[in-house]
Design a protein around this nucleic acid. Structure first.
Lengths: 342, 342
DNA sequence: TCGTAGTTCTGAATTGATTCAGATCCAAAT
DNA sequence: ATTTGGATCTGAATCAATTCAGAACTACGA
């Protein structure tokens, strides 16, 4: 049996399609009594209501913002940084009665298709890898879109922080405390079926910031041990374990993200060493767990970032493609102190 | 200037609309050389690709699952229980190249509209309040949908646990330890513009389970102090503070959720008392923080719940409307012990 | 009684694609 | 020389609504 549509009902009641449409979408345009009858018949016929796809086609507005995330969708609910960002975005979207479409693809090859088929009014790309095929597809859609965090693409509205300057601030803090033997734990994006680990642009910026500080202090960057590691607590743990085995042992370990720093804290504890007594540890992002762990870190306004992106997208004033840099802040907690013997 | 569509391109190239459509959606249906030319012209004309709304209208499939959440959308990224559930759902959706539409409405009145306008193939309602207008609208859409957690509505596929039996297990554990003076912290859903606090059906079930255990032990439910509190850490803290002031002081406090129990732990610490020395505390859900806090609780398979819901929705085998009850497990940690002096 | 205004309803055009049954054309097989 | 088959392309119908100009009717004051 064919689907029940406006037409079916119009015929059953003996009115025009227009009138039935009005009964649902513009109640003030018809006699209340007639409207009642139409709704009644619709109910009897098990009508599911005006088809949203057809409506959107005609109206040209979806009331939805598409959200693209790195690799796995479940990441949206795993990484505390992503969670905070999305919370901020959700607040703004909700107030505008706009839903969030969290987009998912099983592999890079499908990303394009998913982007092409999304029924949305705009997109936000959150911490996508530079050069991801989805970004190219995004351009093709010619809808408003904002890149959050990374990568910075010329001409595309961007919301983030000055990672490089922030990283320099953090590293300078350690140098001022007197540390001279530094080590860095650097997050990598492990790509499937690729044996080279990929560094994201934000991470690259942070690394550059650490370097800036080291050079400014008149030290050599070559003396700083940089260890790549997967972006996870466990990655930080094993990476830090190796750094702690160096001789002479570094007096401070700076991670490119809090998640990794938390793993490093664990590694230190497992060695029977203490933080900051034997070694100072610093992270980046200030996720909630960082506070509990007493981690010195750079705080960036995660939820506020999400809110800013939401406003940008909803106000449609992004024609001028601004690059918005949010404020950051050095948060010093108990995981850093002057080096032992200083 | 009018929008660029398939027609515009068809005319520019001098072929039919069908052929242009095929160039995008069925590359094998036309000469590669012609396809190349069409794509080239499309690029020149700044064509944004086949309109997804039009495509969906014609095809009848959206590739999206709609997710309805209680009250605030940001809740999805706040409550660890919700986060875990959504992670599981996301895993399954992703594998099927299906996106998740997190639906948001500024107030209850808009909920209906948002549900009616969502372009999706199915819905999942996560821990919605019983009788929420969105649920009614959901029925009207006549799309597959699954209710997760609560409320249980006859005839609608359901995935959850047997809250009542689980609660009984938990309470029985405390009674076996020897506790006789119990108190309960009960979560409420505060409704806007309503002075009566609303109890969700899952919470009601848990409460009933506690009562079952108490009665089975030959005790009187009237002797158990039940304190309603908002569903938050802070609510648990202030609620517990009051229970601790009772004389004689309860030897065990059972909360209806972990979040509240965590607040209770804090209240005990603020009083200068110890857990479980002076008072035992138990929660419900086993959110990650519960493990860290050493909280005795009921573990329910949060992510697995999400996965089950996802499979149900994607396999479309939900015609028979099953009620799926997942396994739960009593997790005893350091927050419970025999009462003082036992 | 006529003009005007307001309410209620309709018809046809429009939104942007996909689908499917055929029309063409060319080469290979009979 | 005719048939067959495949590849390539087209026209018209279809998907399910919304929109807008205008028709029909009623009511009201002049």
């Amino acid at each position: 049996m064919p689907r029940v549509t406006l037409k079916t009902i119009a015929e059953a009641v003996g009115v025009s399609r227009t009138t039935v449409s009005n009964a649902f979408s513009r109640p003030d345009q018809l006699n209340p009594e007639l409207r009642r009858r139409i709704l009644e018949v619709a109910e009897e016929l098990d009508y599911a209501g005006p088809d949203p796809a057809a409506r959107t086609l005609r109206r040209g507005k979806a009331g939805v913002i598409g959200v693209l995330l790195t690799e796995e969708l479940s990441y949206a609910f795993t990484d505390p940084y992503a969670v905070a960002f999305l919370r901020g975005l959700a607040e703004i979207a909700e107030a505008a009665s706009t839903s969030l479409l969290l987009m998912a693809w099983p592999d890079e090859a499908s990303a394009e298709r998913v982007v092409r088929e999304a029924i949305v009014d705009g997109f936000v790309a959150f911490c996508m890898d530079e050069g991801h095929p989805a970004l190219e597809a995004l351009h093709q859609r010619r809808l408003p879109f904002v890149i959050a965090g990374e990568p910075y693409v010329k001409g595309v509205p961007f919301v983030g922080i000055d990672d490089r300057a922030a990283a320099k601030t953090l590293c300078t803090h350690l140098l001022r405390l007197g540390h001279r033997r530094l080590a860095v734990l650097q997050a990598t994006h492990p790509r499937i079926n690729m044996d080279t680990a990929h560094m994201s642009s934000a991470i690259a910026d942070r690394l550059a910031g650490y370097r800036d500080a080291v050079l400014d202090a008149g030290l050599s960057w070559d003396d700083v041990a940089v260890r790549p590691t997967t972006h996870s607590r466990e990655g930080g743990r094993s990476g830090a374990a190796q750094l702690l085995d160096l001789y002479p042992r570094p007096t401070a370990i700076i991670a490119t993200t809090d998640l990794i720093a938390l793993g490093a804290l664990q590694a230190v504890a497992e060695r029977g060493l203490t933080v900051p007594g034997n070694v100072s540890i610093a992270g980046f992002d200030d996720i909630p767990e960082a506070g509990e762990a007493g981690l010195t870190t750079i705080r960036q306004p995660k939820s506020e970032k999400g809110r800013t992106v939401g406003r940008l997208l909803l106000e449609e004033t992004i024609g001028n493609a601004p690059r918005i840099l949010m404020p950051y802040e050095l948060i010093t907690r108990s995981s850093t102190s002057p080096p032992p013997g200083a």
